[in-house]
Every structure is written in structure tokens, then in C-alpha cells.
Design a protein around this nucleic acid. Structure first.
Length: 602
RNA sequence: GAGGGUGUAGCUCAGCAGGUAGAGCAACGGCCUUUUAAGCCGUUGGUCGUGGGUUCGAGUCCCACCGCCCUCACCA
């Protein structure tokens, strides 16, 4: 077990004995693989040739993913977060090179401009490609003399992080290749990485050791880069509409804004019980009272509830509030955010559903299997998920393909269609449609619920619940799973909505919508209640309705805030983790979270 | 909380109806200057999640426990 680690430690010592620090320093002037490849395509290099022009000289770094050592010639496949690049190390060429301070040379990398929509790694980032003189930063990595560099090359292990300088060329087979003249090690990998072809597939290990998942599985990196881009996109939408980002307390003496059990904690110096927030709502509304007219927060929330493929104890919720708006404005913003992210980040209003993706994965697996036996290794472009030599620098490319519907995939009509506007359906109407009972027929509704409870299909015991709660349980059971394409469910039963304005013509309903996609709640919005007297009463009613499981208390300060007058407003909450699940086709929320909570290992 | 599934080498997986634990990758030694999951020759590596039990004999059967996954329930 530790044999391989010991072998690697021995090599670590060997590198040190050569006078090279195996945990190297700053490496300025590097160009990422995708940018090198893009530049290389423009150079029109013939197979078997190396381009000697200054534009073909690059400094590169990355993690060693594959190695093919043919003796005096070594091919390495390097990976960074933009993609892969093949390096070739010729014993003769490297041994002839002399020691070189790393930043002191001109390379082609400086000529690559960052694109406006560049991914991380797609183009030069600040501090990269910028050339620095040898004295500017004394702590730079130094390339050792060639003879030593070659010895280091011979000790490389998969997973090591290395740096090189070289010239672009193509091999006989046409593969764009950096012919390395200078090489050094930047960080020694002491543990063997997962299998090079299958990556890390054990789900438990992928969650517990996400760093291994990320370094071994490019599609995992893609997942989280996409998440970042989705969040960036949302910020852009909100800023364009004049919203400002604010931060409100996670540690709260009184929790509220949702019905959930909180985590509790304690502040030592103040000797005060505190709760981790279950929602930012009541603080964001205080901002409205104070005249911050359009605010939003990407709020990490914590709920001490069950864990499931769509629930994690901590999760990220976008909440935003717009003064002088109402829930109709929130519907429009929801569309702008969600459909916009689908189109701009993923590349299409149509997104493959989980089931489609599952099917796709299975068929891909079959293809892969037959390939490996039929024409094993004969087609380098037939990599796993684009992880091969043609690694695509744009992580959204995979999903974008789902738009053309011409790839023999399952029927495109199964895909989710985010094209706005989305249908607005009244709660009571949908209830009647799918439950088959009138929402007003209390007796029948209760009878149905009792029957479901007897059959253990719903947990709620209707004999112990208010009418509205029973209705809500039936709605969840019958209606929500049917809401596949994006749908706004509007006008909820008022008792379910303690923070919402009543409908002006029918006080039984509240000006609230929830947005459902693929049977999952994605968003929740109100025309916010701003009458302090009504607010105080509905909160009190909600508190009375709570069982003894929660210990919520009236938030007097919040009620007082409303007494200073809160403008009428629309408020919206969107589950960011779930949105990412949806847009990236992830079946579990854990796939949308970098480090999902796992039980402590025994 | 209930039910189902799962746990074998660093990784990906085989392991038949109980009969001394296997492959590929990785690693180690050797050969190779155009490889593409490089190839060839040789070699190392496992308290089969943990603990009990049945049996002459348990990775395999039984029980308990632990982790993970799924379904349901709980949960705006």
C-alpha cells in the first residue's frame, strides 16, 4: 500500500539530490494548454516538423496525466484546467540545453490575448504571459541544466506538477506537441492518482476526496467551472437591473424566513445562543426598509433536516428584493435568470433531463467498450468525454450539443424547454386537474389525504393539520412531480404564506408563486407583505401552528422594522444548487456541491 | 426512521452454488528517439468494510455493526 508512496518519496529525495527543489516556485509567463493549442493551429505546422519561430515558443505547466517513455524519447500528456497538451522530451535536445532562469525569456505566450468570454485557462490571465526580468521576482522557478533535467524527466510520476519551455511542433501522426527544451518539477505528487482511463468513479471517494475527483476527472472540473459561470451570469443580470449585492448575518439570535429546523451554536464571549440562518429573508427586508431598493444575496443557508439527492444541510440560495415591484416582476426576473443562464452558459434553452443523460451515458459506455476491443487505441479523438487529445476547452460544449437534436439521442421533446415565457398556472386550477378534487371541497380533500396517509404515501396526518396544510400535502404528492417543463404555480393558499400579501380579490389566496422544473421546486417568490399589523398576526399564527419541534420566536425587531414602512416589493428565492443540478444534468445535489456533507469516517 | 443495493490491491473491476484470492491500469527491474490508455520481458503488492457465528474449511452462507448509493417517509 505505502510501497508506491515510498517509491515516490525516494524519487523526491533523488530530485533534491540533483539540486532541484521538488516543490518549486512561481512560474511566470506560462500559457495554458487551450491557448497553446489555439496558437499552434494558426502556425500551420506540418506533421513531423517543429516550428522554430518565437511565436512557437511557449512556457507551460500542468499535472502529468499520461507518460509514454520510449527510452531516449518521452511523451507526456499534461493537463491543466483548460485542457491537455502533449509534451515530447528528447534526451539529446534536453541535455544540450543550459540552465535558465525561468522568466527571463520571450515566448509566444505573451501574444495570446484574453477573450471576452474566456474560461479560466482559455487565455492568458493577469500575471500570465506577462514577462518578467530575472531580477523582478527572485523567487522564480529555475530550469536546471539539461543533463539534470533529463534525469528529472526519468523520475517523473503520474500526478507530478511540472513546468517546461519548448517549441511547438507536430509529431508524425500530426499531434500538436510541445518539444521541450527546459524542464523542471514544481510539485511532487506523493500519492498515486486514480486510474488514468476510468478516473475516480467511486461516488463516496468522489465526495470525500473531491480534490482527487477534480484532478482525475475533467468533467468534474467542468461541473464546477460551469457553476461559477452560472453564478457570474446571474450577478450580471442583477447588476444590469440595478441590484446591489449585500451580505447579511449567518449567525442569528432569532431565525426565521422559512419553516425549518436550525443548527444551533453558541458565542462564548457574549454567552449567547445563536442559530445558523435558515433564510436571509428577514434581514434583506430590513434593507428594503432602510431604502436599499434592490438588494440580493447569494446566501448560504443551513437547515437541520434530512439529507436527500436534492437536500444538503447547507445550501446556497439566491434571494433578491425589488422595491416597488411585485411577484409578476419576480416571474420575469426568474425567467431572465434561469432561462438566460441556460442559453448563455449552457448554450441552449433546451436542456437534456437526467433520464436522457443516464441513457446517453449507458450507450456511451457500450460504445466505449466495443471500441476498446475492436480498434483499441487507434483513434485518439475517441476519448472519454472529450478528455482525450481533443479535449475541448469549453465545458459547455457537451450540453450545447444537446440543442441540435441530430445526434441520434433520445427524442429531443423529452428535454426541458426553458424558452420564456413559461406558463403561469393557478394553484387551485392545477390542484383540481391533478388531484381530481376541488380545492374548496374540504371534506373530500381530507378524506383523500387520510386515505394516502393510511397507505403511508404521505407522512402528514390530516387529522392533525389545518385545511391548507392538507391541501399542500396533496399538491406536493399529486401535482409537483408532474411539473416538468418550467412552470410558475401562482396564488398559493394564504395560510401557507405568512410573509405574503393577500390576493386583493380573494383573501383565501396569497400573491405567491413557486417555480417548478423537472418536478423540483426551483424558485419561490412573493408580493411581500408590508402591513406590519398583518405581518405580526400571520407570524403569530404560524408560531402557534408550529409543533414543539421548532422553537421559533417572534422576531419583534423585524416587525418593528416594518412599522417604519417597507415599500411594496417583490421578493424571490432561487435554489442555486438545484439550478446547477438542472443546468448540468446532475442527478444529485452532491454533484453540484464541491464538498457535500458526509458522515465522519469511522 | 423503513425498504432495497453496495463495500475485494493505490485506481477500475472479476471471483462460479463455500475448497489455498484474480485481471487491467499504477508501481518495481530490464529493452526501446514519433508514442496516443504506447509496446515487449520479468516482479512486487490484498487482515476480501468491522466483529461474531455456521462449517473440516467462509471473499462466498447467517447475525450484528459501520460507510456509501437509491426509493419512501421527514423536510416550504
Amino acid at each position: 500500500m505505502s510501497d508506491q508512496i515510498q517509491d515516490r518519496k525516494n524519487k523526491l529525495d533523488a530530485v533534491r539530490a540533483l539540486g532541484v527543489d521538488p516543490y518549486g516556485a512561481r512560474f511566470p509567463g506560462l500559457t495554458h494548454n487551450a491557448a497553446i493549442r489555439a496558437a499552434g493551429e494558426k502556425l500551420a505546422i506540418e506533421p513531423g516538423q517543429i516550428n522554430e519561430s518565437p511565436q512557437a515558443r511557449f512556457r507551460a505547466a500542468g499535472r502529468l496525466h499520461l507518460a509514454r517513455d520510449t527510452g531516449k524519447l518521452i511523451f507526456l500528456t499534461l493537463r491543466d484546467w483548460s485542457g491537455e497538451l502533449q509534451w515530447a522530451l528528447s534526451k539529446k535536445a534536453i541535455e544540450e540545453a543550459s540552465e535558465r532562469r525561468s522568466g527571463a525569456v520571450t515566448t509566444g505566450g505573451a501574444d495570446v490575448p484574453p477573450g471576452p468570454t474566456a474560461l479560466p485557462g482559455e487565455a492568458a490571465l493577469p500575471g500570465e504571459g506577462a514577462l518578467t526580468g530575472p531580477t523582478a521576482f527572485p523567487g522564480e522557478a529555475v530550469f536546471p541544466p539539461g543533463a539534470i533535467a533529463w534525469q528529472i524527466a526519468k523520475t517523473l510520476d503520474l500526478g507530478d506538477i511540472v513546468a517546461a519551455e519548448g517549441r511547438l511542433g507536430r509529431t508524425k501522426t500530426g499531434e500538436l506537441t510541445l518539444w521541450v527544451s527546459h524542464l523542471t518539477m514544481l510539485s511532487k505528487c506523493l500519492r498515486p492518482p486514480p486510474e488514468k482511463w476510468h478516473g475516480l468513479s467511486d461516488v463516496e471517494l468522489r465526495y470525500r476526496k473531491r480534490y482527487v475527483d477534480l484532478l482525475a476527472n475533467p468533467e468534474s472540473q467542468r461541473q464546477f467551472i460551469l457553476r461559477a459561470k452560472i453564478i457570474d451570469y446571474i450577478r450580471g443580470v442583477l447588476h444590469a437591473r440595478g441590484f446591489i449585492e449585500v451580505e447579511t448575518p449567518v449567525l442569528q439570535p432569532i431565525y426565521g424566513g422559512a419553516a425549518a429546523r436550525p443548527f444551533t451554536t453558541h458565542h462564548n464571549t457574549l454567552d449567547m445562543e445563536l442559530y445558523l440562518r435558515i433564510s436571509p429573508e428577514l434581514y434583506l427586508k430590513r434593507c428594503l426598509v432602510g431604502g436599499l431598493e434592490r438588494v440580493y444575496e447569494f446566501a448560504r443557508c443551513f437547515r437541520n433536516e434530512g439529507i436527500s439527492p436534492r437536500h444538503n444541510p447547507e445550501f446556497t440560495m439566491l434571494e433578491l428584493y425589488q422595491a416597488y415591484g411585485d411577484y409578476h416582476d419576480m416571474m420575469e426576473i426568474s425567467e431572465a435568470i434561469i432561462a438566460g443562464a441556460a442559453r448563455e452558459v449552457i448554450g441552449s434553452y433546451r436542456i437534456a433531463t437526467k433520464r436522457e443523460r443516464a441513457t446517453e451515458r449507458r450507450s456511451d459506455g457500450a460504445t466505449e467498450g466495443s471500441d476498446s476491443t475492436r480498434n483499441r487505441g487507434s483513434d485518439p479523438s475517441r476519448g472519454r468525454e472529450g478528455a482525450g487529445s481533443s479535449a475541448h476547452p469549453d465545458p459547455s460544449a457537451d450540453a450545447r450539443d444537446s440543442d441540435d437534436g441530430s445526434r441520434g439521442r433520445s427524442d429531443a421533446s423529452d428535454a426541458l424547454d426553458f424558452t420564456p415565457p413559461w406558463p403561469r398556472r393557478r394553484y387551485a386550477e392545477l390542484f383540481g386537474e391533478h388531484v381530481g378534487l376541488s380545492i374548496d371541497d374540504t371534506a373530500a380533500v381530507r378524506a383523500r389525504a387520510a386515505e394516502l396517509h393510511r397507505r403511508k404515501q404521505i407522512g402528514l396526518d390530516p387529522s392533525k393539520a389545518d385545511d391548507a396544510v392538507v391541501i399542500g400535502a396533496l399538491f406536493e404528492h399529486y401535482v409537483e412531480p408532474k411539473l416538468i417543463n418550467p412552470t410558475f404555480v401562482i396564488d398559493y393558499p394564504a395560510p401557507l404564506c405568512p410573509l405574503t400579501k393577500r390576493h386583493p380579490t380573494d383573501a383565501r389566496f396569497a400573491l405567491r408563486f413557486e417555480c417548478f422544473v423537472n418536478g423540483m421546486e426551483m424558485g419561490n417568490a412573493y408580493s411581500e407583505l408590508n402591513d406590519p399589523a398583518v405581518q405580526r398576526e400571520t407570524l403569530a399564527a404560524q408560531l402557534r401552528g408550529e409543533g414543539d419541534e421548532t422553537m421559533a420566536v417572534m422576531d419583534e425587531d423585524f416587525c418593528e422594522a416594518l412599522e417604519y414602512a417597507m415599500p411594496p416589493a417583490g421578493g424571490l428565492g432561487i435554489g442555486i444548487d438545484r439550478l446547477c443540478m438542472l443546468l448540468t444534468g446532475s442527478p444529485s445535489i452532491r454533484d453540484a456541491l464541491l464538498f457535500p456533507l458526509q458522515r465522519a469516517p469511522g
